[in-house]
């Protein structure tokens, strides 16, 4: 009877373990990896979102008005677009696929680990029962 209770408890422990391991994997990967990468991205690109809007315009316009118009505009003089930017806009960051891949691997690894621990626990209980009976 005692062994029956023991095996039931082992099963319950495995179930709890299995549910906690992926939670750790999720929590550990999502928060720290996303924040730093996003914090570094804006610095590589233009600047801060809302607060920069009013200040960026007056400071940049006078200094850049001469250069970009002269270099990038097709020589029509004053065009409908006041300052023609150079190059192509960089409107896409693709680190999401890498992040989700590592998340998936972590969750899969956690589940496999939980399965291994559960199997080992059940094996030990059965072995104890077999030797005790």
């Amino acid at each position: 009877m005692r062994r029956t209770v023991l095996s039931a408890m082992a099963a319950a422990c495995v179930a709890v373990l299995a549910s906690t391991v992926p939670a750790f994997a999720d929590g550990a990967s999502a928060a720290p990896t996303t924040r730093p990468s996003s914090a570094s991205e804006p610095s590589a690109r233009p600047s801060v979102p809302a607060s920069a809007e009013p200040s960026a315009a007056p400071t940049r316009e006078p200094s850049r008005a001469a250069a970009p118009v002269a270099t990038a505009a097709p020589g029509k003089g004053r065009g409908q677009v006041g300052v023609v930017p150079s190059g192509a806009p960089d409107t896409g960051v693709t680190t999401s696929s890498d992040g989700s891949g590592s998340d998936g691997m972590l969750i899969g690894g956690g589940a496999a680990g939980a399965l291994a621990v559960g199997g080992a626990a059940v094996f030990l209980v059965r072995r104890r029962q077999a030797t005790g009976a």
Partner: peptide, 28 residues
Amino acid sequence: MIRLSGRAFVTAALAALLVSCAGHGGDG
């Protein structure tokens, strides 16, 4: 006794499988 242990093993395996499936579902 041995039968009960077998059930426990099956329960553990199912629990682990369920958790891994739930993890992928959340990601998607």
